[in-house]
Amino acid sequence: MAGDGQGFLDRIAERGALRRWRRLATAAPETDLARLRGQRTSARRLKRYLDDFMHVADGRLALPANVNHAIPRPHDADWAWRPELWSGPLPVPGLASVRTASALGSEATLFHDCPASELILRQIRNTREADLAAYGLRLDVFRFDGSYLSLAVDLPQEAAQGLKRRHLIRLETIVEMETPLEIFVRLNVQHGPNVEQIVRELPLHRHGTRVEFDLAYTRLKDKRVDKLWTDIIFEGSQMNQVVLRDLTFSRRPRAEL
């Protein structure tokens, strides 16, 4: 067995695949267009799986082996998740002069109404052994004359599956900032044509902060939940640097009264 855990037949197959794609890449400038189109489709499918593998592998290998990548979760949680931005390296690690609706990765999008954007959004490495997340997010705000600045984070479909009004959704994060500011979190739950919204202020007086959203106070229709996302809203962010060292979500059923 090789050091990477591959067997003899696996290594033969891998070498054959490498030779094939090297041959196709070399011949691409002269390949018939119809055939080239089919090869491109196959390459895109392969690239999607390779990108998924590299994201997970790079994230796990980013920090020393003794670092704990666990997700904090209540003991009775039925779902927990850390977004990709805090889990592993992104293909594009940062954005400068960020325009509104600019995405960093596939799950996080920055929104604002500032005419002249002096914003920098960047994924950074966490290097402290105390950090559970491999990566963090840094937001640098210079001159800002807009009325709102928010980071939208899309939750995966698993968060919506089986979601009931008796559920509590928890957001946990570690926030660092240069100067004090207020941060609010809005949970959005789309069910059919309607969107239920709950807003909570992050308590920033502790190292690790959390907020919980009780769906019992909404008019959620359990059988029609389509998607969930959160808006992290920054108030008074001008001339400031905010770092989200970690961001996790979990879900648990509410205790019966």
Rank of each mutant, 00 (worst) to 15 (best):
M1S: 10
D4Q: 09
G7H: 08
F8S: 08
L9G: 05
L9D: 13
D10F: 10
A13T: 09
A17I: 06
R19P: 02
R20F: 15
R20D: 11
T31Q: 00
D32V: 00
R35Q: 02
R37A: 00
G38A: 06
Q39R: 02
A43L: 11
R44C: 08
R45E: 12
L46G: 13
K47D: 09
R48Y: 14
R48E: 11
R48T: 13
Y49M: 09
Y49V: 07
L50H: 14
D51P: 06
D51I: 03
D51V: 05
M54R: 15
H55I: 04
A57D: 13
L61K: 12
H69E: 07
H69M: 12
I71N: 02
I71V: 10
P72G: 03
P72I: 04
D76I: 10
D76Q: 13
A77L: 04
D78P: 09
A80Y: 11
A80T: 04
W81C: 04
P83W: 03
E84M: 09
S87M: 08
P89Q: 11
L90D: 08
L90A: 08
L90P: 08
P93T: 04
A96Y: 14
V98I: 06
R99S: 15
R99F: 13
A101C: 12
A101L: 14
A101W: 14
S106W: 11
E107P: 05
A108N: 02
L110H: 03
L110C: 04
F111T: 03
H112N: 02
L119G: 05
I120F: 15
R122V: 09
N126R: 08
T127L: 14
R128C: 11
D131L: 04
Y135K: 06
G136Y: 03
G136M: 03
R138S: 11
R138G: 04
D140N: 08
D140V: 13
D140H: 14
V141K: 02
V141E: 03
F142S: 13
R143G: 12
F144P: 07
S147H: 11
S150R: 14
A159G: 05
A160T: 02
Q161V: 14
L163R: 09
L163C: 06
I169F: 06
I169A: 02
L171E: 07
L171T: 06
M177T: 06
P180Y: 02
I183E: 00
F184Q: 10
L187D: 01
L187P: 01
N188C: 11
Q190Y: 05
G192H: 10
G192L: 05
N194K: 12
N194M: 11
V195A: 04
E196A: 09
E196S: 09
V199G: 02
E201C: 08
E201V: 06
P203G: 01
R206Y: 07
T209W: 01
R210E: 10
E212N: 07
A216W: 10
A216T: 06
R219P: 01
L220F: 09
D222A: 15
V225G: 06
K227P: 07
W229Q: 02
W229C: 01
T230S: 03
I233Y: 02
I233C: 05
E235K: 15
E235N: 12
Q238G: 10
Q238I: 14
M239K: 12
M239A: 13
N240C: 06
N240D: 04
Q241L: 07
V242G: 00
D246Y: 05
D246A: 13
T248K: 00
T248E: 00
S250C: 05
R254I: 03
R254Q: 13
E256I: 10
L257N: 09
